[in-house]
């Protein structure tokens, strides 16, 4: 398979890749040499671990390696928003919505509310401003559905 990986290819992961991903989804210790510590646990060389991680990043399996920030604690705003867009105009409107840098994810879903996106802003007040700007720019209402309570799951996707 030639790099970069085509959009619909499924990554070819071996047993060690899977062990590494499953272990690291549980987090990395905050120590001077964290990869050496994890390599030890997995009974492999630190260099092997780092090379595997670089390869997984290059072929697009890992998007990022680092901290998940708590947006609200950072003083930022975060919300989930939805819009009901007529089929014929969907592509045009999704492009307009995605020109806003605050739009972090945007999914088309099967419902009358068919566009679902996450907004991440530097301040909580900015959420309302961005929503108003999207409504003005597209002419369609935005349904704002901020998180009111989070029920904690163990974030782990076995691969």
């Amino acid at each position: 398979m030639s790099a970069p990986m085509a959009k619909h290819d499924i990554a070819d992961l071996d047993v060690l890749d899977r062990r590494i991903i499953n272990r690291l989804q549980d987090g990395l210790p905050v120590v001077e040499a964290p990869f050496a510590a994890v390599a030890d646990e997995l009974a492999i060389d630190e260099q092997v671990l780092l090379e595997r991680l670089k390869a997984l990043k290059e072929n697009g399996v890992l998007s990022r390696f680092g901290p998940m920030y708590h947006a609200e604690r950072l003083g930022g705003g975060l919300t989930l928003a939805a819009m009901a867009i007529p089929e014929a105009r969907f592509d045009e409107i999704v492009e307009r919505v995605n020109t806003f840098p605050e739009v972090a994810h945007n999914y088309r879903r099967e419902h009358r509310l068919n566009m679902w996106f996450v907004l991440a802003t530097e301040t909580p007040e900015r959420i309302a401003e961005v929503i108003a700007a999207i409504e003005a720019d597209t002419g369609y209402p935005v349904y704002n559905m901020p998180k009111q309570e989070e029920f904690h799951v163990r974030l782990h996707l076995p691969v």
Binding site: M5, K7, H8, D9, I10, A11, L13, I21, L24, Q25, D26, G27, L28, V30, L53, N59, G60, V61, L62, S63, R64, F65, G66, P67, M68, Y69, H70, R73, L74, L155, L157, V159
Partner: peptide
């Protein structure tokens, strides 16, 4: 980093997998 983690600013330090290649 330890401080931010204890304080909850950093929720988790780990890797983010992309779903589609998997």
């Amino acid at each position: 980093v330890e401080h931010w983690q204890a304080d909850g600013l950093i929720k988790r330090l780990g890797l983010v997998v992309k779903h589609r290649p998997l």
